[in-house]
Design a protein around this nucleic acid. Structure first.
Lengths: 150, 150
DNA sequence: ACCCGGCTGCGAATAAGTTGCAAGTGCGTA
DNA sequence: TACGCACTTGCAACTTATTCGCAGCCGGGT
């Protein structure tokens, strides 16, 4: 199961990072070492839990507290710079927001794959016509079984 | 946003309950007051969290412990009699398994609506052709915004 | 009525995430 | 370049959801 980066990571991570920091500053936020390191971690390929991100950040700056990670992720999500994705009952995972896409999460091996936004077209239409409901595909993962685990 | 029971609840709850108990017995399980009450609670319309189910059961039998609720829900899920649905970061919700369907969960008011299984057709095909991935629509809720909250 | 094995209650443990508060620091201003 | 205010951070304690070990209970086949 590849395709982890069918969507994110097309541009140098440092560019994405500085762009995100710029947006933070626009909003009256500050640029701090913790934030830069968090963005470094989150721009790396794949889907990361808050705990993993904390660990990655701590590799460079041991003092950074999980609370800081959570608060910054909240802020980045509020600015729509990152997507928070809930995978079954496990911890939420985060990745840079980019092209709209959804996720597939294997219930047995935990692998995650991205699915293009177009795959959600009929789903989107059904939700909209039946309930006037606007779906957010990026924010959740569809459970199931991947090819390897079937 | 109605349609909570577009799928479940077409048959008298007591029938569904006794049928589920019969399946449990087939599997070498026992019929206990706690199980009957849990099934009574879960067959009532809507989507229920483990905590809510515990409270409902305790209205009739105050001694029943949450652990018992969780263990029985696990068992019922194993037998595919109930579906466990994860809604964002909140507690899991449970409902009787019946016709395959998905869920829409409003991020702002928490309302839940059911979506027929057919709405997942293209999604299913996309997941299958791209990754050989078999999705389980019943097991998750799609976040978004309902008509009232937009 | 008896007995075996499944079921239950209890308490403690775990994991993820949140909150209040005091101390620290980025960065606009002078 | 120094100052100060508002934004950030670290810490510890708390909440919520769920699981586990263990001892005793009881459903139901004989």
């Amino acid at each position: 199961m590849d395709g982890q980066d069918a969507v994110a990571g097309r541009y140098p991570a440092a560019d994405v990072r500085e762009q995100a920091l710029a947006r933070l500053r626009e909003e009256g936020g500050r640029i701090t070492p913790a934030r830069r390191l968090l963005l470094d971690a989150i721009t790396s390929p794949g889907h990361h839990t808050a705990g993993e991100l904390a660990e990655t950040v701590r590799a460079s700056a041991p003092g950074v507290h999980v609370t800081t990670i959570y608060r910054n992720l909240d802020e980045l999500e509020r600015l729509r710079l990152v997507d928070r994705t809930y995978i079954s009952n496990g911890p939420a995972t985060y990745h840079m927001a980019s092209v709209a896409h959804g996720h597939l999460a294997c219930e047995s091996c935990g692998a995650i794959a991205d699915l293009p936004g177009e795959a959600f077209a009929t789903l989107h239409d059904a939700a909209m016509s039946m309930y006037g409901f606007e779906i957010s595909p990026a924010r959740f993962a569809i459970p199931g079984r991947c090819a390897r685990c079937t």
